[in-house]
Nucleic acid binder design. Structure first.
Lengths: 279, 279
DNA sequence: CGCAGCGATACCCGGTGGGTATCGATCTGC
DNA sequence: GCAGATCGATACCCACCGGGTATCGCTGCG
């Protein structure tokens, strides 16, 4: 049996990403020769060629591509283990939610949980969409409020909290603002346009509409007449002035869920989840 | 900014499982002092106490329990990466399925895939229920035929192939054998009893009924009059003599799916999956 | 109270991870 | 077409650290 070390994986990932031993070594804060040697050892140990070197260029073999994918996942798992262990030692929970979303629910939850016997401090972390899942998976957060179907909950344990319809948020004076309700087909290509949210990779899709990363920013753009928005009904509470809200009759229902990493029901997380489901 | 090594995780898991430095060292094939030191280093690096040592006994702290769970997962991920990389280099696929199940479908699939251009060798591995998922997750298999809802497909990508009802398989001459169909409520507590399948941990639940680990074994026990069985309709084809089959009107539908580790659609796996969905 | 069990400490050694110097091959520009 | 630049591999060296042995210190037990 062999036993690949995480150091080797880190080296390999660096080279595979840079496709250049010199730059990879720089990034790793080491010299190039030991890096070459380490990769060579890894290849010998696995009995597999990971790179095709032509003394002018470096390319991944098929096996190398597999190890890049799998190795990143393995490193993430190791780092998650590390972080979760560190944080298990210090009291307190980290809860993540999208900035500006579910504010009402969150406030009620925190109040109710704080009143529970044995409640610990809850550190609320706001972040952009898509980021929560990452924080939960890599051990930086213990529990999160997500919104299906926008956030993927694959690989997380969840408990449903609340389901609601969606509304169209318009600048005041917009022609659709007088309508009782609208349909999704009427919203396509609306002017001003819908915003673009960042994808899982942090990049933005192409298209019209401003690039957005949180809800308050979006509402501000709407009130400036630069965007429209499709949002859960609960935004009614967050809306100040200068905005018009119209229900969308056929938008998919959005469900707020509380999610946590699988098999990690610590006492505190379990309490918080129970509190949430009883709200 | 630290970097836990897999070696350290292996050491930690050994000690956490044995709760005894001496035995753990023995299991790891090393002496006790360097093991003690390694654990100490790990604790210092994490800044967290993992064990409560009282010079007479060793116990996990809460953080230690977290690291045991997470560390096992991380080690599994590293080993999976290793195996998948090794196997990516050699051609051929490993397909797992429950022994004795889906024989018909499997034969058709293998034939059809072999006729595809660019088909590679497929190594079929039969194993007990629950084991397939493990083989898929830890990188020993590329693709599997599973049966929902019996097999958990969490964390795997799947494509549905076939859905069917379930039937009751009885020894010939059994009183229920003359019925057109039966209901689940009639099957509870049936005599001879239903068998017990091993759980995810390899252990068997309590209760009456023989302990079983594959389908052919089960059918044999039924024909000997020692058990009854609830199985997908497709067993009709596998049945020889001495058995009676009665449809169960209200049993949950069972779906045969083809499953593979997420993000691992190599050319060969993709071809096989496509072939399967076109059957 | 003395002994046995067990983890921690002290100390030593060899392997190996990392560094520098250099080679050899290939691409580039004059 | 040759000189220089670029880049990975090789050769060699050193220091650190992972692992070993000897021993200590604590503790529960007969």
């Amino acid at each position: 049996m062999s036993g690949v070390e995480t150091r080797e994986l880190r080296y390999f990932v660096a080279v595979a990403e840079e496709l250049h031993f010199g730059r990879a070594a720089l990034r790793l804060g080491m010299a190039q020769p030991p890096l070459s040697r380490a990769i060579g050892q890894l290849e010998r140990r696995l009995g597999v060629a990971l790179f095709e070197r032509s003394s002018r260029s470096v390319a991944l073999t098929e096996a190398g591509a597999v190890l890049l994918r799998e190795g990143r996942a393995a490193l993430a798992a190791v780092e998650a283990a590390e972080r979760r262990t560190r944080r298990a030692a210090e009291p307190g929970l980290v809860l993540v939610t999208k900035a500006g979303a579910a504010a009402e629910l969150l406030a009620k939850l925190l109040d109710a949980y704080a009143a529970e016997p044995g409640a610990v401090a809850v550190d609320v972390q706001l972040c952009g969409p898509g980021e929560q899942e990452r924080l939960l998976r890599d051990g930086r957060a213990d529990v999160g409020l997500l919104h299906r179907p926008f956030d993927s909950v694959a690989g997380l344990d969840v408990e449903e909290l609340h389901t609601e319809g969606q509304v169209l948020v318009l600048p005041s004076g917009h022609p659709l603002g007088t309508r009782e309700s609208v349909r999704m087909s009427e919203v396509e290509g609306i002017d001003p346009p819908l915003p673009r949210w960042p994808g899982a990779d942090g990049g933005y899709p192409d298209g019209p509409g401003p690039e957005i990363h949180d809800t308050t920013q979006l509402l501000q753009l709407v009130s400036l007449g630069r965007a429209c928005a499709i949002m859960p009904e609960a935004v009614r509470d967050a809306v100040r002035g200068g905005l018009t809200i119209v229900p969308i009759s056929d938008a998919p229902q959005v469900t707020t869920v509380i999610a946590w990493p699988p098999h990690s029901r610590s006492r505190a997380v379990a309490d918080l989840v129970r509190t949430a489901t009883r709200l």
